[in-house]
């Protein structure tokens, strides 16, 4: 179900995509102090679609990784419209490993229509980069909290969201494919995106129902001081709780292990070779 009170799923998708919403950098500035950006994947380049670094969450040092879309056209272009290159994911992984070494919680802000789709990205192993993040994140020994602030586009979003806690802002979305992409594959008609958005169960409320998201973050006063104080307090409480918890990696494995809906039927004859 879309947010039952007011909007259709596709309206929520449009809200999630809106350039007016706070971006990853806004979240970093709002929730943390003393942010120091750390650049580059140490192999090829620094992808500006993913911003990472160190910051203080009240008094605790944390590793922060955020996908940045930018507000103005200039910013959007600079940040590659929030579609990360393989280097972005590799930078994120580098910073996450560093966080593990120094036992810092990791906080990710997710806002992407998907991993960058292009010739160069493919040639530099987009799939391989995402796979590496999934593989590493599920076993990291420090807390990971992922907050979906806008769009959560498929594998490109999941690569920063194999987390202990997945939170979604009220108007954030998370999906295996864009409603437009789904509509054009299933109905060969991009105009059916609205219908597709409903069926894909991609709103925060759907994700919560499926267990994919753990909590929905209210957007009351979104982008204002009160909002950031609320989010900051929540992050601090969760980071403290998770840090105190032993066996994080096991719990994270179990969290993802349970996903799936299937039947198990009995096969009477097994005449396979």
């Amino acid at each position: 179900m879309a947010n039952p009170k007011y909007k259709s799923a596709y309206e929520i998708v449009k809200t999630a995509r809106s350039g007016q919403r706070p971006t990853g950098i806004d979240m970093i500035n709002g929730c943390f102090t003393d942010f120091i950006e750390l650049h580059g994947d140490r192999y090829f380049s620094d992808d500006r679609a993913i911003i990472g670094g160190l910051a203080l969450l009240y008094d605790i040092p944390v590793t922060v990784i955020a996908i940045e879309k930018g507000h103005t056209l200039k910013e959007r272009t600079e940040h590659g419209f929030g579609a990360p290159q393989p280097e972005g994911y590799r930078k994120a992984l580098r910073l996450m490993r560093q966080a593990e070494k120094f036992k810092r919680p990791i906080i990710c802000f997710v806002d992407t229509s998907g991993a960058y789709c292009g010739i160069d990205a493919e040639e530099r192993g987009q799939g391989s980069a995402i796979a590496a993040n999934l593989y590493e994140m599920i076993g990291l020994k420090v807390p990971i909290i992922s907050v979906f602030i806008g769009e959560g586009g498929s594998g490109g979003a999941l690569a920063l969201a194999v987390a202990d806690k997945v939170w979604m802002l009220e108007n954030a979305v998370y999906s295996v494919i864009s409603p437009e992409g789904c509509a054009s594959i299933i109905w060969k008609d991009i105009k059916k995106a609205e219908t597709a958005a409903e069926y894909l169960k991609m709103t925060a409320y759907d994700a919560l129902e499926l267990g994919v998201a753990d909590e929905i973050i209210s957007e009351n006063g979104l982008g204002g001081d009160e909002f950031y104080t609320m989010l900051k307090d929540k992050l601090k409480a969760a980071a403290d709780e998770l840090t105190a918890f032993d066996g994080l990696a096991d719990a994270r494995y179990k969290r993802f292990r349970k996903f799936g809906s299937y039947d198990e039927i009995t096969i009477e004859t097994e005449e396979h070779k």
């Binding site: 999934l134 593989y135 594998g155 999906s175 789904c182 894909l200 499926l210």
Partner: peptide
């Protein structure tokens, strides 16, 4: 991923990766 199963399909990527890692 099989889009007809939405987010549950996407989650299989993390689930299988976890099993590979172990």
């Amino acid at each position: 991923a099989r889009m007809q199963e939405g987010l549950l399909s996407l989650m299989q990527m993390a689930k299988t990766s976890g099993a590979v890692r172990r």
